[in-house]
């Protein structure tokens, strides 16, 4: 039996070796771009005292949402600060934001391509299934060997895990535009680009936004896993608490993640609705 085993694992390791050996400069480039993105966002989040940002976020929540969200933001963020988790929370947030921004930047165009061509969709769909069902730990390893330890492989892993909803829902949203409207746009002589910008994207926007919201939530769920490969942040507190069996610290950090999750979810949803 053993003689017949396909050496799939060996092949993948060979491929990994080959990629690291030959595409080193590319990986270095990606690493520096993502690294500076995360650093930039993080720096701008902690440049001011926590209180200033808390007030700003509360005001933002009041402006785009209802007073209840604003109240929750104010109390929730104060609690995070009070628990001494402000800085790690902002580190995690910058990882989440970077992963989300990149997911949107790549996901929306890929989704558009899928909506336009059946072949592209047929190729992309199984890849997305693979990305979403393969346990995240598994692709942490190659991410580390390509990008070494730290926040960058965390961002990459988050993107792989979180980008599918944006792609899927962009595709779905565009395909759901009623065919008679597309026909009308054609009948008046729209170019494909005009059709996309003037008709399909505006009508698909609510669906695309739902996808982006999902992407943000999924990348937030990756902060703990990312901390296993050296990403700093509140996820690292959870990870440490688990390995050292410290229930209290674990819960504190967990609550900080929950607060951020609820805030991101409500804020993005209200912002999209407002649009």
């Amino acid at each position: 039996m053993n003689l017949l085993k396909i050496p799939l694992g060996d092949w993948i390791e060979k491929l990994e070796e080959w990629l690291t050996g030959n595409l080193g400069p590319l990986f270095d480039f990606i690493r520096s771009v993502i690294g500076s993105m995360v650093d930039g966002i993080e720096a701008s989040l902690i440049v001011a005292p926590a209180m200033v940002l808390i007030v700003l976020i509360t005001a933002l929540a009041y402006w785009i949402g209802k007073w209840r969200i604003a109240l929750f933001a104010f109390i929730g963020l104060l609690l995070i600060d009070n628990l001494g988790l402000w800085e790690p929370s902002m580190q995690s947030l910058s990882l989440v934001l970077t992963a989300s921004i990149l997911s949107v930047v790549f996901g929306v165009p890929i989704g558009i391509l899928c909506a336009r061509s059946q072949t592209t969709q047929n190729i992309v769909t199984p890849v997305l299934d693979f990305m979403q069902t393969m346990p995240a730990f598994v692709y942490l390893l190659p991410a580390v060997s390509f990008f070494s330890l730290g926040v960058v492989p965390g961002v990459i892993a988050s993107i792989i895990f979180a980008i599918p909803p944006t792609i899927r829902l962009t595709n779905l949203g565009i395909r759901q535009v009623p065919s008679e409207l597309v026909e009308a746009a054609d009948a008046f002589g729209s170019t494909p680009a005009q059709k996309l910008v003037k008709l399909q994207l505006p009508l698909a926007m609510p669906t695309i936004m739902a996808g982006i919201n999902q992407t943000i939530m999924l990348s937030l769920s990756m902060v703990v896993i990312s901390s296993m490969i050296g990403a700093q942040g509140v996820g690292a507190f959870v990870y440490r608490a688990v390995t050292q069996a410290k229930t209290g610290i674990g819960f504190e950090a967990g609550i900080a993640i929950v607060i951020m999750a609820i805030l991101l979810d409500r804020l993005t949803q209200s912002a999209f609705k407002k649009k």
């Binding site: 008679e180 409207l181 026909e183 009308a184 009948a187 008046f188 002589g189 729209s190 170019t191 009508l203």
Partner: peptide
């Protein structure tokens, strides 16, 4: 063809097909 549709042939649809946005 696009030019023809833009300048020479207009169309009106059964279910109106107005752009809702």
């Amino acid at each position: 063809l696009r030019q023809l549709r833009r300048k020479n042939i207009g169309m009106v649809f059964q279910k109106f097909a107005l752009f809702p946005h």
